[in-house]
Amino acid sequence: MSLDAPHIGFVLASYGAALAIILGLILWVLLDGRARRAEIRALEAAGIRRRSDRPVDDARAAGPAP
C-alpha cells in the first residue's frame, strides 16, 4: 500500500471510521457491563440479593445458580 496514491485519504478515512465505530461499540459493551456489575455489587452490599443466590458471590459474574 502506497501512501501517495490518489484517493488515499478516502481509504484512510474509511478505516478510521471503522476503527472509531468498532471501538465505540466495544467501549459501550465494556462500560455498560461494568456499570451494571457495580450496581449489583452496590445492591448486594446493601443486603439485597436474589433469593436463589448464595450469600458469598463470585465477583465477576452475577453468580451461578445453586
Binding site: M1, S2, A5, P6, H7, I8, F10, V11, S14, Y15, A18
Partner: peptide, 10 residues
C-alpha cells in the same frame, strides 16, 4: 487503485 481497500471494511 488503492480505493479497493475500502471494500474490505465496507
Amino acid at each position: 487503485g488503492e480505493t479497493v481497500r475500502i471494500m474490505y471494511v465496507h
